[in-house]
Structure formats: structure tokens, C-alpha cells
């Protein structure tokens, strides 16, 4: 009987191992002004395209990257100068940035985000009428 049930109900997946406490780092960044807008560069060593998330919500740009250095299983750490963890940093975008045209690329552990300038709103004359 119990066998029957086991066959028809989806087998419960083994619970994932409890998440290991990971360090969260603030990556160093450069912000550079170009003619088209602002160029943001962030050092994210060990982060690949699959482990990088870049998101704009309202006027906040958030980058989150998971460092995944390919250390073989069972490697014994003899000497440590950097730690493995996640990169997180967010920025408040000014109104000058054209949100919908933001583009980004990742090269050799450096994320480059282009924040193009929004065209300035032209002053507009408003006609005033009377009844």
C-alpha cells in the first residue's frame, strides 16, 4: 500500500544542504564620464555570466555576483589572502540616466555598465487660454 502511494506521489527531493554563510563584499568600482553617459566598472573576480545578476528597480541599480572559483573537491587550504563570497553593491541612478538603454558586459572579471544620458527635456511653452 505504502508502495503504491510512493509510486503516485512525487518523490520528495532531498532537502538542499543548509546554506553556508557566505561573505558579502562591496566590489571596488570606477565611475567614468563619457560623452554618451556614465561608464561604471566593477571588479568581480571569479564571477561568471551565470552567477551575475544586474537589476534596475525604480532608480536603483543593483549588482549581485557570486564568486565561484573552481576549487576541486577536497582541496586543502594552506594559505589564504582572499575569501570566497558574493559581491553586492547598489547605486542610485540620477534622472539623467536613460534606464531603458542601460547595457552591460562582463570581461575577465570586470563588469562594465554603460549608463547612457537621457536626452534633456526641451523647455516647452504652455499656451494659456481664457474662457
Amino acid at each position: 500500500m505504502s508502495h503504491e502511494i510512493a509510486r503516485t506521489t512525487p518523490v520528495p527531493q532531498p532537502a538542499p544542504p543548509p546554506p553556508v554563510e557566505r561573505m558579502v563584499f562591496t566590489p571596488p568600482i570606477d565611475i567614468y564620464e563619457t560623452d554618451e553617459g556614465l561608464l561604471l566598472r566593477a571588479d568581480l573576480p571569479g564571477v561568471s555570466l551565470d552567477t551575475l545578476e544586474l537589476q534596475v528597480q525604480d532608480n536603483k541599480l543593483t549588482l549581485f555576483g557570486r564568486m565561484q572559483p573552481s576549487i576541486p573537491e577536497g582541496a586543502k587550504l594552506l594559505h589564504q589572502e582572499f575569501e570566497t563570497g558574493d559581491f553586492l553593491r547598489s547605486f542610485i541612478l540620477s534622472d539623467e540616466v536613460a534606464h531603458e538603454r542601460i547595457s552591460a558586459k562582463l570581461n575577465h572579471g570586470v563588469l562594465e555598465v554603460l549608463l547612457p544620458k537621457a536626452p534633456k527635456a526641451e523647455p516647452r511653452r504652455i499656451q494659456v487660454r481664457t474662457n
Binding site: 577536497g74 586543502k76 589564504q80
Partner: peptide, 10 residues
């Protein structure tokens, strides 16, 4: 020291 390095033994 730059760059930071980690050393592992296998």
C-alpha cells in the same frame, strides 16, 4: 600584496 593569492593542496 597584490594580487591576493590562495594556496591549496591536493
Amino acid at each position: 600584496q597584490y594580487p591576493p593569492v590562495n594556496l591549496y593542496e591536493l
